[in-house]
């Protein structure tokens, strides 16, 4: 982060010298926005991290699980041929569908391919093809026009001192944190969670101690799919729903996971918040259209200095 700030101040435009109380207010606002953005990235990234931890597969199609969640909820909520439900039941159904989709992909594609012995690099390339396929199927059905949900769209921002935040966004942050705590509880306090952690840290030992690997991996994919769908709905609420929204989020998820430590679910959470904050706060010095660029640059810097990330084990990454 220090490298980033030094670079930032060195490159800053002459007429936007950061100083004075106005700047502090904007910084706080950016921080809050960053926490919210980070929370959404965290929810979607945790699933991606767990999938990597248990199967060593980098699921390039994870962004599409996010998009599909948001789009299914949209269809149920506002869609022309849909039932026109309120957002909350629409979201609930979308989450279930996302979870089922995750489970279906694992059971129907990855498990048979793993059994066949297809190599990890080939599997990774397959996820890229899958991502292309799913994303453009969504495009055909959803179209290019960005959309919004019917409820909670325009709201008055609450005035909390220097920062303003809509009730919707506040609730989203709270819910996200709750969900992340729930995932943490799952991992630490349940048999399934322990099995997941065991499989991530030592697959051979885990299998030898009787853990049903296929079942654990299936649970991880169901969980990941559901979380991605939830993240999609949140992202659609706070930003806008587009056919490639998940894909745009995917690189930030990767950044968050690697920054936090590949293979560590808690690392993914922490890293995602950092990425969200970096992205939003970069707009204090730089044009908004470079937000994602700065977040990705943070990723590259981390890879240079500490490739195992914040919470990762110091294993060989090269």
């Amino acid at each position: 982060m220090r490298v980033h700030l030094v670079l930032a101040t060195a490159l800053a435009q002459g007429d936007e010298v950061p100083q004075g109380p106005g700047f502090l207010d904007r910084a706080l606002q950016a921080l809050v926005d960053g926490i919210q953005f980070g929370a959404i990235i965290a929810i979607t990234a945790v699933g991606l991290s767990l999938i990597f931890g248990t199967t060593h597969l980098i699921n390039f199609a994870h962004g599409e699980l996010v998009t599909i969640g948001a789009v299914v909820a949209f269809f149920l909520n506002v869609g022309a041929a849909g039932p026109g439900w309120h957002l909350i039941p629409s979201a609930a159904v979308a989450i279930v569908i996302g979870a089922l989709l995750g489970g279906l992909i694992e059971r129907g594609m990855w498990r048979p391919l793993r059994k066949r012995g297809v190599g990890l690099i080939n599997l990774f390339i397959i996820t890229i093809g899958l991502s292309l396929l799913l994303r453009h199927i969504v495009l055909v059905f959803f179209g290019t026009r960005p959309q919004s949900y019917r409820e909670y769209d325009i709201q008055q921002a609450l005035d909390l001192g220097p920062i303003g935040i809509t009730p919707r966004d506040l609730i989203i942050i709270a819910l996200s944190v709750l969900v992340l705590l729930g995932v943490a509880f799952l991992l630490q306090r349940t048999r399934t969670g322990t099995a997941i952690r065991a499989l991530s840290s030592n697959p051979d030992l885990a299998e030898a101690s009787g853990i049903d690997v296929n079942r654990v991996v299936l649970i991880v994919w169901v969980l990941g799919g559901g979380l991605a769908a939830l993240g999609g709905v949140f992202y659609g609420l706070t930003e806008i729903i587009t056919w490639d929204m998940g894909f745009r989020l995917l690189l930030l998820m990767f950044a968050g996971i690697i920054l936090g430590g590949l293979g560590s679910a808690y690392g993914a959470m922490v890293g995602s918040f950092v990425i969200g904050i970096v992205a939003q706060m970069s707009s204090l010095w730089f044009p908004i259209d470079l937000q994602n660029a700065w977040a990705l640059l943070a990723l590259i810097v981390v890879l240079l200095i500490r490739p195992q990330g914040i919470l990762g084990q110091r294993e060989r990454v090269g």
Partner: peptide
């Protein structure tokens, strides 16, 4: 010096950073 998957993600990121700039 990174393992294959890290290299893949880092190079996608680099490409996007450049494009965005």
């Amino acid at each position: 010096r990174l393992r294959a998957e890290y290299l893949a993600i880092a190079t996608i990121a680099a490409g996007e950073i450049l494009r965005l700039f």
